[in-house]
Simulated assay, not measured.
Amino acid sequence: MKVKNTSQYIFIFFLIVILWHIASAVVKSPLLPPPAAVFYNLREVFFSKIAPHAALSIYRIIAGLIFSVLIGSILGLLMGFYHSVDRVLSPVIYFIYPIPKIALLPIVMILFGLGELSKITMIVIITVFQIIITMRDTVKNIPKEMFYSLTSLGAGDIVVFKEIILPAAAPELLTALRLGTGTAISVLFFTENFGTVQGIGYFIMDAWMRVNYIDMYSGILVLGGIGLILFSFVDALDRIFCRWKK
């Protein structure tokens, strides 16, 4: 992470803390505890109470995103390059994509149970379509002239994918992954409140039900930290695999 970006993150963090402290002083209610109390509580209970929930949530998110990227990028690239594949799969994608995926949660739980598989499956169902459409449209938007120079030399599809399509699609895939990461965190928070007693979403809602607002805010901070870590990881992938953009 660059020094400039680190300084910006630190500045924004302290700005949020200051505004939070002012709001807490004005409200003067247990519903909005001061940040100092939350940070102290976070230090005291993180490893004993929160870390196991956070670790499991991170596992669920990463597993879901890995499957989404594998499935979504393969299908999207094939749909973008082969018109026959696009003709077959596009109607299916257009029919399923607008359906609110949260409505499928009861079906997923019936089919896959209340364990890890159902939660990972929900993340995949909700994030994979965005990756499919992004990859398909990226390939379709590549100028046809770029393919002619290779195909005229007798290059096959594998060479075209390696030399043209994959480099062109990588930045868009990472953009879709960023969007999918935020969606995955939101979905996970929802699914972790059904049929489980583990996960950061469960921890937050359980603290709210117990009227333990300091624990609740501690969990929210950890959830935000998880998002920051995952987005920073995607940025690192961008710097590694898309250095040519610089």
Rank of each mutant, 00 (worst) to 15 (best):
M1Q: 12
Q8Y: 14
Q8G: 15
Y9R: 15
F11A: 15
I12C: 12
I12W: 13
F14N: 03
I16R: 00
V17C: 07
I18T: 14
I18H: 03
L19M: 11
I22Y: 11
V26A: 11
V26I: 15
V27G: 00
P30K: 04
A37Q: 12
F39R: 01
R43L: 14
V45S: 14
F46N: 11
S48Q: 11
A51E: 08
P52D: 07
A54G: 09
L56S: 07
I58Y: 11
Y59H: 09
I61V: 15
L65A: 00
I71E: 00
G72V: 01
S73A: 13
S73Y: 07
I74C: 05
G76W: 07
M79H: 01
G80V: 05
G80C: 05
Y82K: 09
H83N: 12
R87W: 02
R87N: 10
V88S: 03
L89V: 10
S90E: 14
I96S: 02
I96R: 05
I99H: 08
I99W: 07
I99Q: 10
K101H: 10
A103W: 00
L104G: 04
L105C: 03
V108W: 04
G113R: 04
G113F: 02
L114D: 00
S118C: 11
S118M: 02
V124M: 05
I125D: 00
I126N: 05
T127F: 03
V128M: 06
I131G: 02
I133R: 06
T134A: 04
D137A: 12
K140H: 06
I142S: 02
I142Q: 04
M146L: 13
M146V: 04
F147M: 04
F147G: 04
Y148H: 06
L150G: 08
T151F: 07
S152G: 15
L153H: 12
G154W: 07
G154P: 10
A155H: 08
G156A: 01
D157G: 08
V159N: 09
V160C: 13
K162N: 11
I164M: 05
I164K: 03
P167N: 07
P167E: 01
A169T: 15
T175Y: 09
A176G: 09
R178M: 09
I185V: 14
L188F: 05
F189P: 00
F189G: 08
F190Y: 13
T191E: 03
N193E: 02
N193Y: 06
N193S: 13
N193I: 03
F194I: 14
T196M: 04
Q198I: 08
Q198F: 10
G199M: 05
I200L: 15
G201N: 09
G201L: 09
M205I: 13
A207S: 14
N212E: 11
D215H: 12
D215P: 12
Y217N: 09
G219R: 06
I220A: 15
I220P: 08
L221S: 05
V222N: 11
G224H: 10
L228G: 05
F231C: 01
A236I: 13
L237D: 10
D238T: 12
R239M: 13
R239I: 13
I240D: 07
